[in-house]
Design a protein around this nucleic acid. Structure first.
Length: 219
DNA sequence: AGGAAGATGCTCT
DNA sequence: GAGCATCTTCCTA
């Protein structure tokens, strides 16, 4: 598992320090853990897309955990059961669960845990790192490129074709990133859900400008 | 600054 | 037919 730094060196996410370079691959078993444990550890990791032959990369700055059939807000909730739509959620950790939200937005989840558990982490926002010109073209605007689950899906060119894709392979990969101090991570309730709306399963880099919701809230 | 509402399509009752 | 793990534009201040 990834260790966190304990010290509070001047934190540089706002000024975009990218050194030193991150390791090549995630630790073994990184995703084979409960979603609520993986979700904060994904902050600082990268999502790299080469969809349509165009490279786009972002650093994960906001996530939400969907913790299993007992989680009423999850697509894998027990009252729904396993269906054609959510079947990927029940795959082994490391799969991409991609679903269409509100008929318009393709949203990306990283499946966690073991096969059959039905747990995963919604990627809610990225800090654009490479290919921002491609992102802007796909988004049709130069701002808000990846600050929301639908926005980042569009910016990276993600569609339902990638549902079930394993994230260790191109064209959509989950890569290690930069380790955050605990003090940089904020926890809050999940956004845009009706059931279990008070469960503290949303994680974001404190004060990061690319998070999807109001900046003012508790930095 | 912040709220209201429309777009749009799939899933489940 | 209802209800979304959303985003945008268009209002009102």
């Amino acid at each position: 598992m990834r260790m966190r730094e304990r010290n509070a060196t001047p934190w540089a996410w706002h000024s975009r320090i990218r050194d030193p370079l991150p390791p090549e691959r995630l630790p073994a078993g990184f995703l084979d853990r409960p979603a609520e444990a993986v979700a904060p550890d994904l902050l600082g990791c990268r999502i790299a897309s080469s969809i349509d032959g165009r490279q786009t990369v972002g650093v994960i700055v906001e996530t939400e955990a969907y913790v299993g059939p007992h989680d009423p807000a999850s697509h894998a909730a027990a009252r729904i059961g396993k269906t054609a739509r959510n079947a990927t959620m029940f795959q082994a950790g490391g799969a991409a669960y991609v679903y269409l939200s509100y008929g318009i937005h393709w949203c990306l989840n990283v499946v966690t845990g073991r096969e059959g558990e039905g747990t995963g982490v919604l990627i809610r926002a990225l800090d654009p790192l490479e290919g921002t010109d491609v992102m802007a073209e796909r988004r049709g605007r130069a701002d808000q490129l990846c600050s929301g689950p639908g926005r980042l899906g569009q910016a990276l060119g993600i569609t339902g074709d990638l549902d079930g894709h394993r994230l260790e392979h191109p064209p959509l990969r989950l890569l290690p990133g930069w380790t955050l101090p605990c003090s940089a991570i904020a926890v809050s309730p999940r956004i845009g859900i009706r059931l279990a709306a008070d469960w503290p399963l949303r994680f974001h880099i404190r004060g990061h400008p690319s998070v999807s919701k109001a900046r003012g809230s508790a930095s």
